[in-house]
């Protein structure tokens, strides 16, 4: 279990916990009786692994799969767009590879 006020586990089968209070880089937290130092600052609403997750494993939140790990994820690591992908439909960001950014690159005369 999580011995910190910064994170909350939503379901006992989850392999991630959700940040409910901003947690600064370097903060020591205890997950499953193991001390872990955060490598990144984690903002409210973001999630970290509370168990190690292998590439291809399902990431579990609310007790259900919310996608698959694209890389091995260590306990305490930020779980987000770089290591988790949807099993349904890709997510996008403002700067992601999509038609909008290609158009912008062509307007700005950059190589795509």
């Amino acid at each position: 279990m999580i011995a910190t006020e910064n994170f909350v586990q939503l379901h006992r089968e989850d392999n991630i916990v959700v940040c409910r209070k901003r947690a600064m880089k370097g903060l020591e937290i205890i997950i499953n009786e193991q001390g872990i130092t955060l490598n990144d600052t984690i903002d409210v609403g973001h999630k970290i692994a509370c168990k190690s997750i292998n590439k291809g494993d399902k990431v579990i939140k609310y007790g259900v799969a919310i996608g698959s790990a694209m890389a091995d994820i260590m306990q305490g690591e930020h779980v987000h767009l770089t290591n988790l992908q949807s099993d349904y439909i890709d997510s996008h960001t403002r700067t992601g590879v999509n038609s909008q950014s290609k158009i912008l690159h062509s307007i700005l005369g950059k190589q795509t």
Binding site: V18, C19, D43, V44, G45, H46, K47, K61, V64, A65, I66, G67, V79, H80, L81, L84, Q85, S86, D87, Y88, I89, S91, H92, T93, R94
Partner: peptide, 15 residues
């Protein structure tokens, strides 16, 4: 799924 969803910690559509 909007970019702000991801900035706020959501990663996937099913999440």
């Amino acid at each position: 799924f909007a970019p702000g969803n991801a900035e706020g910690g959501l990663t996937t559509q099913e999440e």
